[in-house]
Design a binder for these strands. Structure first.
Lengths: 114, 114
DNA sequence: TACGATATGTGGCATAGCAATATATGGCAA
DNA sequence: TTGCCATATATTGCTATGCCACATATCGTA
């Protein structure tokens, strides 16, 4: 139970919001993003490489994030992504959308006394 | 904008929670469920027939809901679904899981000052 | 040498949403 | 009487996407 995700299904769709949010403050690379999500959710939400990297390419292709390779001696090359101006706008819209969605779910699942 | 879903992606996975919640108080049929969700979310969340009916079959197959045909003169036959004891337990677990998920998302997307 | 952590990448399968389409009934308007 | 809309359930086929398993590559440590 503790090794499993909170719910694999619910992770879908929220992935973009999570990644864009984490890139808001500073550029980060893929592995860092996956570890951050894992730690902050206390292991509840986990991104697999096979989901994360293709998603990063999609976000970059849409122009929401911009990646650049950083090579430092003593470590494998990393691709750091940062939010583009377009990505900042999308993030704001997604935050609003997420709020609205959570409220809608709340109204539907909790209004059984109506 | 108003004709579009809040976000098609976020609907994924929450579908089961929505349906189980709506069946908690009383048995309902498919079309009724889709209309209820649409109205309570003020059009933000909408279930298409091609998603809803297969989902209802899946839930019934898993033993979480039980359907029965109701035929009344003057209207098309309807299939009313009600929660099974197993479904009640699953609903409780899904409610908890949803809460935990929303909190985890909040921690990840809002902790950029850490 | 061997293993684990870091770091990125991909082929292929399974799931699942949705557009389009179909069937069937009843009410209402042209 | 013909046509259209709302109700109500159902399926086919396309597409998007998550994940298992595997691969590549570097570094530290035992």
């Amino acid at each position: 139970m503790a090794t499993k995700s909170i719910d694999a299904e619910w992770k879908k769709g929220s992935a973009e919001l999570l990644i864009l949010s984490l890139l808001e403050a500073m550029p980060r690379h893929g592995y860092e993003i996956s570890k951050l999500i894992e730690h902050r959710s206390e292991g509840g939400i986990r991104f697999h490489a096979a989901s994360l990297y293709p998603l990063l390419y999609r976000l970059e292709k849409r122009g929401w994030i911009q990646g650049r390779w950083v090579e430092k001696s003593g470590q494998r090359r990393r691709r750091y992504y940062q939010l583009t101006p377009s990505g900042v706008k999308v993030l704001a819209a997604q935050r609003e959308g997420w709020q609205a969605f959570v409220e809608a779910i709340s109204r539907i699942t909790g209004a059984e006394n109506a």
